[in-house]
Design a protein around this nucleic acid. Structure first.
Lengths: 143, 143
DNA sequence: CCGCTACCTGAACGTCACATGAACTCTGAC
DNA sequence: GTCAGAGTTCATGTGACGTTCAGGTAGCGG
């Protein structure tokens, strides 16, 4: 076996082939080419792709995922402990995210209590100390 | 005072005027027009806009936000208890979101323990029972 | 009444993360 | 050797969420 085709990787990971090509363009995954210019993937790519998809489900951007993946060794196939190190880092990330949502939730609760939504002191109107003023969605996941 | 200009609403809420016009196109907010065709907003619009922004920070789409806002009374200015009802609904939403992230986090932990990332039984590879296979980002916020 | 700033519309542009389609080539089972 | 099906590149489309620009109008202090 000289490597997995893009279709095989797609089937095993659930990612679309178009996504796999796109991620390769971005440098998130790598492939070697056959003499006929077709992509062939190492078995370890399955893990990498699974990780990308798991990270996306948490809402992280491909740029951030790429940054995380770049901490894996280039030269050798990543070991379980390489991945474990990454997973520990993600745990911190997820904890942080939970903390932020809880804070917003608690602020909403306090607004329910005081009915103060129009006041300058209301957390809902002045959440700058919790979540900075960024674009939608992604803000929850920023550092 | 015959209402707030778009610039005043923008300044008080932190939203861009272009965003306010866009949200008005979508029906999330309303305005009356002066004889010279300029927008004038009710004071209550400040709350509405603040809510939209708060909801966006949690990652919800404008469509969902619009659905929530449509439960507010059209005829009269929303009271504190109108808003409180909305906030309670959001609390459930945020709790749900936290629960999902926690589940994913715990699954990552189990992967650290077993080093099984490549196995079919690993939660990281088979998270379908946790988060359905949707597009990126928004998935965390789906019903 | 002058002039400055804010405001108006509509269209074009931008980003992210791909999906889709056209036109063509490779691979592998028979 | 043949042929279906899988793979290739490149261009273009999608959808959410706006921003920017062009070309003009409103409103208000002086």
């Amino acid at each position: 076996m000289s490597g997995l085709t893009i279709g095989q990787v797609a089937e095993r990971t659930g990612a679309a082939t178009s996504a796999l090509r796109y991620w390769e363009d971005l440098g998130l995954i790598a492939s070697v080419r056959t003499t006929g210019n077709q992509r062939r993937y190492e078995r370890a790519t399955i893990r990498r792709v699974s990780f990308i998809r798991a990270a996306q489900r948490v809402g992280l951007s491909l740029e951030e995922i790429g940054a995380a993946l770049s901490t894996l060794p280039d030269a050798r196939t990543p070991t379980a402990s390489d991945w474990a190190r990454l997973s520990r880092a993600w745990r911190g990330r997820l904890d942080e995210q939970i903390r932020r949502i809880e804070k917003l939730r608690d602020q909403l609760d306090s607004c329910i209590g005081c009915g103060c939504l129009s006041l300058r002191t209301c957390a809902l109107n002045n959440p700058s100390d919790v979540l900075a003023d960024h674009g939608p969605g992604a803000v929850l996941l920023e550092p």
